[in-house]
Structures are given as C-alpha cells and as structure tokens.
Design a protein around this nucleic acid. Structure first.
Lengths: 290, 290
DNA sequence: TTAGATGCTATCATTTTGATTTGATCATTT
DNA sequence: AAATGATCAAATCAAAATGATAGCATCTAA
C-alpha cells in the first residue's frame, strides 16, 4: 500500500498539483502536468495512476474530452491554505521557480503599486539574520533626506508598505523605515551594541490583546461576523504594540471610546480601547484619543 | 558543462532554495536542505557542488562554522520576484506543499483577519472555469440575507476582501459579492445564458488608464516618488473600471477635481479624474464627485 | 469509416537519489 | 597537546525514479 508520507518531495509536489487543479479548476489533462513540470508523458500517467490509488473517488476520466474531472465525492488529499491558494491562483502555482507560471485570468489580486527592491530586502534580511547594522540614506515624509545608521531586526507589512523595524542611531530609538525609501544601503561589519538588538524593542515585543466587535452602526451585523469568522460577536487578536495602529487603520477599526465615528467604512469597533495604555503607535488609528 | 535549463524540476527547486537562502539569509548548511526537502545528505553535497559549478563566486564554505556563506560577489542564479520573496519569507519557502514550513520570525506580513473558506473558493473557481451558475445565500450589508443564483466569472481582491464578480439573476446585472458572505453554495448544472458570461460585463472588461501624481500637499514628494517607483512624477495605470474605486480607496488616492482633500494619508492624487466618465465603481473613491 | 488526438500499460535504458564509508577541518573538552 | 565530536566532501554501489518508446483503447470530427 502506497502512502503519501513515503513519497519523495518531487512526487508529492506533482500530486499536490493534481489535487489543487481538481479542487480549484475541476479538471486536468496529462498535458497540464507535462507543461508545468516539464516531465515525460509516461511519468504523468504514473502520477495520475498513483493519485488514483491514493484517492480513488476523487477523479474520473472522461474519454469524450480526454481529461480528468473532479467527482462530487472529492476529498482533498492535501491541505491547501486559503491565502496560499489565492496566491497560487493569481500568480501561478510553483513557488521559487519562475517557470510554469500561467496565472488564472479569473483570479486577480490587488494591484501592487509598491515593489520593494530585491537587493534592499536581501541586504536587510541578511543584516537581520547576522545581527549587523547598515548605513543608508533615508527620505522621510517629514524631514526629507538624511544619512543614518540603523540596526534592523524585522520586516513588516503595514497593509500598504513594507517597513523595516530598526534601531535608529540618529534618534537613539526603535523606529519604522519604509523599505522603498531606503537608498545606498551598506552593511557595517562592526558588531552591534546589544542594547540595539530586537530584544530591547519594547513596542515591538509587547503583545497586546485587543477586542474587536461589529460596529454598532452596521445594520446587518451578520455580514461582518461572517467576514471575520466571529463565533460570538467578538474577535480577539494578539498584536504587537508597534503594529497595532497600522492594523486599526488598515481595517478601518473605529478606535473611539464610544464607537462614535460615522461612515460606512467602519465595520469594526475596538471595544477595549479604554483598557489600552496611551500608545504612540495608535496615533494613526481612526478615532483614537479623540 | 552543466546548464540550468537542462536540470529537472526537483533539482532546479533545490538550487533555487540554495540561491534564495544565500541571498536572503546569507548562509546555508547542508542540514537546512535536508530539513526542507527531506533528502539524503549525499544529495545535498551534490546539490551544493552543482550550485558551486554554476555560480562559483556566490558562496564559500567556512570550516569554523561548517556553513556556506554568501560572498560579496554574489549574483543570483534565479530571478526572485519581490512579492513572492516576501511571501516566502513570511510563510516559509515551498508552495503547494505544507511541509518544510519554517517562517521567518523576522518577516511578518499583515494580519489577515478575513479567511475565505476553501470550499467556497473552490466551488466558485470551478463554476468559473466550467461556465456554470451557482445558487447561494448571500448576506448583504444593506439588505441582509437573500437567496440568489449568480453566474461568476472572476475572483478579485479589493485590498481587504476577496470578491466574486458575477451576474446576479435577481438584479439582472453584474455585481460584486464578498466571498465570506456567501453560504450554501450549490452548482447548477444547466448551461448558462451567454448574456450572463463575463464577456458581457462591461464594467469589468473596460480598461481605464488613470494618471496618479504625488499629492500637492506632500512636503517631500521624493519619498512618495520612491515608494511608487515614479520616474517623472507620474504613475500611469491600466485598471478595470469595476475595480478602480477599490484601488483608489485602498491607496488613499485623492480623487477630487482640484486635489482638495486634506489629511496626511493622501499621498496621491488622481490627476485625470475629470477625463473619466461618471463611474458607479468610483462611489467609494475618496473625494470623487464632490 | 477513418484519421487524429489523447489516454493507458509495459518495457528497458538512463538518470537521480539514498546509504555508506573514508578522510578533512575545526571547536571543544580533557 | 591530544582526543572527541560535529559537519563537511568525495567516492562507491544499490535502489528508485524518470524518460523514451511502442502497442493498444477510446472517442471526436472530418
């Protein structure tokens, strides 16, 4: 009896591709496998036979079209993560390799307007992993261009932009820097001071629990409960203090004490706002501290 | 002479993993490869030797640490797409297979609060590919729960939620439905009416060209130009009419005729707003039509 | 009715992989 | 200073996976 766990990486990948295609496209032909994996025809037949052994009820061959079709009894052989799936549908299946990409015309992700530079991300990530500082020029919205030395310890997406969280030698505190506004990065070989490492970034390491509820102004709260998968009307989140403001802004969470913001975009209310300490990260949160 | 193009899929994947690790982590040990691909030790040595043949200047072994390190002369062997990279760093390398996931603690994507149901996405995608209608219950924010029959033709992310674009039999027009608010989906075997197919969705098929410029209120426009990769101060986009409003809202684009919105969140201005026809999709766009 | 496309299976040569052994380097311990 | 242990490389051989090919089945479309 063959078993999924015994198979090697390449075989599992091909079976996952079959599973994915059946589940999300509903059909599959041998040529699709050949196209994607640049494999031989005989292998495809073998893979399809193997898949059929592992999940006999999942697909049937229709000779009229010479394709395999998902059956009504289909049970996925692999667990596909929803976010990863949608990414695969939009970008094409197959991470890491740029070949075999044929994105679906029927699945479009948001238009990405900001594309961090690969070299910048690479340099930052290496500096983070190797605990090194980098020198750079930074163009801030408030103060324009300045040269700095920063000690990065994490990269985070705030919903629109990728930021690097770093100790800033100039201001002597931990700050966020937008990755696309960094230029002329250079690694600095000298070992960093331990007080500049990520462990000392309190706003980053402090995990807050926030409670979100459907905004009282919403006339059909069930819709919002479905969106956010709320069982009992509450959504409890653990969020880094440094990222909380971004999160509230991204999701248009009304952070006023009494849910007093009006406007159709506020679907959620931060119901424990008064329990939270006064946070600088929340300066951008809608309605906070008014 | 070995050549990248000659290698099989599995080998290319392992080389891409080596390339990726060197570029974004800066180092790599044989054990990392074993861990990820569940491969034998001997294979790793072979893969590393092969990588070294293909890119001799990219890495060196340091016996002190028994790891390979990226050299200063590193030239990536594979093209890594920035969005895909950041995804890989956050979620772990290796699409399609859930094994070998060890996401970086130093790269955090936005907190996803909305998780579309895999079955719903699968059913919709199959209906789209097979040009079929589905019956469903939909809970709308304005009118609450209703039963409908829709003919989907695309799935799109509007920046916060995944929508399905579909012909709605009830209203007899093309509309957006939030995927998480769809329940009790059932495929309808009857063939669809051709007037209900995606080709007739004019707001979807109409591609508009929009011109974005840095908002005049920004004091250091260079920062914004860097964010959006503007060469000459302009950003020209081709956008589906049906998605334009979402895009303007997602990026906080001031859509007023004279860039009259105030507020630090408006980094961009839609400079050709007056050239655009009156669009229902733009109802949610900041400042539009005021 | 027949040609053509695409599917399956079987066979065999080739390639890739896994397991094992031997030897090297270097940090750590004795 | 020498022994120990961890991890690397390289070589070898057996096992497994893959590619190529050929013969046959099924169905569509001409």
């Amino acid at each position: 009896m063959t078993d999924l766990a015994q198979l090697n990486y390449a075989q599992k990948e091909r079976l996952a591709f079959i599973d994915f295609s059946l589940q999300f496209i509903g059909q599959l032909a041998r040529a699709d496998l050949v196209n994607h994996f640049k494999t031989g025809l005989a292998s495809c037949s073998r893979d399809l036979t193997l898949y059929n052994e592992l999940a006999p009820a999942n697909m049937t061959l229709r000779h009229e079209t010479k394709r395999y079709y998902r059956t009504a009894k289909f049970r996925p052989l692999f667990e596909h993560n929803p976010e990863a799936i949608l990414g695969s549908l939009c970008r094409g299946f197959g991470d890491g390799l740029s070949n075999g990409i044929h994105p679906s015309a029927h699945c479009v992700d948001t238009t990405k307007l900001i594309h961090p530079n690969t070299e910048v991300i690479a340099t930052l990530m290496r500096a983070i992993h190797n605990r090194m500082a980098v020198s750079c020029d930074y163009i801030s919205l408030t103060s324009g261009e300045t040269s700095r030395v920063i000690v990065p310890h994490a990269i985070a997406n705030n919903g629109q932009r990728w930021h690097v969280r770093a100790f800033d030698m100039k201001s002597k505190e931990f700050r966020d820097f937008v990755c696309t506004r960094l230029q002329n990065l250079a690694e600095i070989a000298d070992p960093i001071n331990s007080s500049q490492s990520g462990e000392h970034d309190t706003a980053w390491n402090n995990i807050l629990t926030v409670e979100l509820v459907v905004h009282p102004s919403v006339s059909h709260p069930k819709a919002i409960e479905l969106d956010f998968g709320m069982d009992d009307g509450f959504l409890h989140l653990e969020v880094r203090e440094a990222l909380l403001g971004y999160l509230m802004r991204q999701w248009n969470v009304d952070c006023s004490a009494e849910a007093s913001l009006t406007g159709g975009e506020y679907h959620l209310w931060l119901s424990n706002a008064k329990d939270l300490p006064n946070l600088t990260s929340m300066a951008i949160a809608p309605g906070y501290g008014f």
